[in-house]
Design a protein around this nucleic acid. Structure first.
Length: 567
RNA sequence: GCGCCUGUAGCUCAGCCGGAUAGAGCAUCGGCCUUCUAAGCCGAGGGUCAGGGGUUCGAAUCCCUUCAGGCGCGCCA
């Protein structure tokens, strides 16, 4: 609609003033949405033309208002230097509803754009239980994957496993001393963590353990059969635990190639760095000096000859480029690693990979604390994700028992609502914001929450179930009231929100627009009866309800939240 | 010390590629269920947009600076 109004504006300017050439005319982005819909549907601030025309903005607006002549626009008014456009309401309703009806669940999407995006997200560490600190990367990455796919991208989701490092040698040493398969199979990831904790306790008394740990890790590096078979079991256990959570969240990956996968792929990185004279020795280690870019050096090889995190990330970037031919590569990782990624991207650039500058992006997000405290396993103030999801589902179930005792599938819906509440909240705000977790907030299902939006969807479904199958020709006159128009406006803004979400790698754009749509609909629903004795008007209102239901479901899908038909 | 990020209502935040009286939700108080789902709707109170300068017709938004908080800064990942 914006582009249509923009065209009307450009025509009006040409008609009213001879000073401008086509190229100088303002584009669609010059149109604003007024703070209050009583002022109009779109506005053009005339201040910017003032200098060129040597005329006061109100006068310009007045002249333009007189020159506007198009069926899309009902009226145009000059108010305080703004030219305010009021849309032809019936026309607007028709365009929006038809567009949604025709595109269906591809609304706001785009056809195959022949581009590929690689998303590195979730990226769990072996032997660590899934907690709320892992939630942001997991749901952000998952949502971005869906948003890009919606806009026609090929997507590759990678769980870059943290499965490399001395700590795994220590874990095997601990397992050999105090562990058993029975204990580990039964206790799962918690048992592995406990072994690791015990290792550190005992190592304080007995420093020789540290050497044992290092020796075991060396055996992993060298491909020793026993070491690898133990470690692979640890991996399996961790993945089994994580997959339970992924299943609940509906999250999946195309690859689980983690750090260990790149163990034999780092030679190339070091060779290329050497060939370009980028590697310099410093305190026994090999580094890439980045002083010219005001960054500390990037460590590539330790003084003992071992590689580092950055080395593996460089290898991974090159491998992914070779194998996926990505046009964009996103790292959904907390902002603590800001410097790390800046360094890695810069090193790639220095290696001659020009694409690094444009295509690599660190999608950083804030940290999670728990009631104002940093989470720590040792102090026991850590929220495990399965506990959170379980309590959220219990909360949902108890509300269902109270409010919808006749619901056919309460367990299933409680799961959708409980999980939806958690995911929705995580994707509501700008990702860069830190999150302080509070139980009472997490379990609140009123207001700006997932359940609120899901409830609105269920309401739509409920009305549609009660509607007669017989369809009259819709009379769009029934959708010209303020509340219906507000709903239509939100529907029409959905596509731009999806594009903004992709542009900024910010799923909250989708979360917000979906929430605003739900709000607008609930207001409409309260003010206007949908099913009544006038078949044409009812048909139009039902078309609106159908569109709202569809777009809410789509919005929720794009952020990875289920849309129950009843709740 | 240097770098990055954040600072908007009691709390959590939106608005930040400049525009009209700064918006939500939670919490508090008060209304609305014999009508399509009250997990809903409506109303009230609550603000030196951290402080100070600057640019501009116009600044929460851009620039400079101070303050406060978070994160990072070589052999962990």
């Amino acid at each position: 609609m914006r582009t249509e109004v923009s065209k009307v504006l450009r025509e009006a300017i040409l008609r009213a003033f001879s000073e401008f050439s086509e190229a100088e005319l303002p584009g669609p982005e010059a149109l604003e949405i007024p703070p209050d819909s009583n002022l109009g549907d779109f506005a053009f601030p005339c201040f910017r033309l003032s200098k060129a025309l040597r005329m006061g903005p109100p006068m310009i607006a007045q002249k333009l208002a007189e020159a506007v002549d198009a069926p899309e626009v009902a009226t145009a008014q000059s108010v305080g230097g703004y030219l305010n456009f009021f849309l032809n309401r019936k026309n607007f309703a028709g365009i929006v509803l038809q567009n949604i009806q025709e595109t269906g669940d591809r609304y706001g999407g785009a056809p195959d754009c022949e581009k590929t995006v690689v998303l590195d997200y979730s990226s769990i560490n072996i032997a660590k239980r899934f907690h709320i600190g892992h939630l942001s990367t997991t749901v952000l990455g998952h949502s971005l994957k869906r948003i890009y796919a919606h806009l026609g991208w090929q997507t590759v989701g990678i769980n870059h496993l943290g499965d490399w490092g001395t700590q795994f040698g220590k874990m095997i040493a601990a397992f050999k001393h105090w562990g058993s398969w029975e204990m580990v199979e039964e206790g799962g990831v918690d048992a592995l963590t406990a072994l690791y904790v015990r290792f550190h306790q005992e190592a304080e008394e007995n420093p020789a353990l540290e050497d044992e740990g290092r020796a075991w890790f060396r055996r992993i590096e060298e491909g020793d059969e026993e070491a690898l078979s133990i470690f692979d079991r640890f991996k399996e256990l961790t993945l089994k635990d994580a997959k339970r959570v992924y299943d609940i969240l509906g999250v999946s990956f195309d690859s689980y190639n983690g750090e260990a996968f790149y163990n034999d792929k780092m030679g190339r990185v070091i060779d290329e760095l050497k060939a370009r004279n980028l590697l310099v020795e410093s305190k026994g280690a090999l580094v890439v000096d980045l002083e010219a870019y005001k960054m500390p050096p990037c460590l590539i090889v330790k003084s003992d000859g071992a590689t580092l995190y950055a080395t593996r990330d460089l290898a991974a970037a090159l491998w992914r480029k070779d194998n996926y031919h990505f046009d964009k590569s996103l790292y959904v990782v907390a902002y603590q690693q800001n410097l790390h990624f800046q360094q890695v991207f810069k090193v790639l650039e220095l290696m001659g990979y020009d694409w690094a500058k444009e295509q690599m992006e660190h999608v950083a997000f804030g940290m999670v604390s728990y009631e104002g405290q940093a989470m720590s396993t040792r102090q026991g103030n850590i929220i495990y994700l399965d506990e959170l999801l379980k309590r959220a589902q219990e909360q949902a179930l108890s509300i269902i028992r109270e409010k919808s005792p006749k619901l056919e599938n309460p367990g299933e819906v409680a799961a959708q609502v409980g999980v939806g509440a958690v995911v929705f909240t995580t994707l509501l705000n700008n990702r860069i914001k830190d999150i302080d977790f509070w139980w009472d907030r997490a379990l609140n299902f009123d207001g700006d929450t997932g359940p609120y939006v899901q409830y609105t969807h269920a309401r739509c479904c409920s009305v549609l179930r009660r509607a007669d199958a017989a369809s009259a020709a819709p009379s769009l006159e029934a959708l010209t009231n303020d509340e219906a128009q507000a709903v239509l406006r939100m529907l029409s803004r959905f596509p731009e929100a999806v594009r903004a979400a992709q542009r900024d790698n910010e799923p909250s754009e989708v979360t917000r627009v979906t929430l605003e749509l739900a709000k607008a609909f609930n207001k409409y629903y309260y003010e206007h009866r949908i099913l009544d004795e006038d078949p044409e008007a009812t048909a139009a209102r039902l078309a609106l309800v159908r569109a709202v239901k569809q777009v809410i479901a789509l919005g929720l899908y794009l952020i990875g939240v289920a849309a129950p038909e009843a709740m």
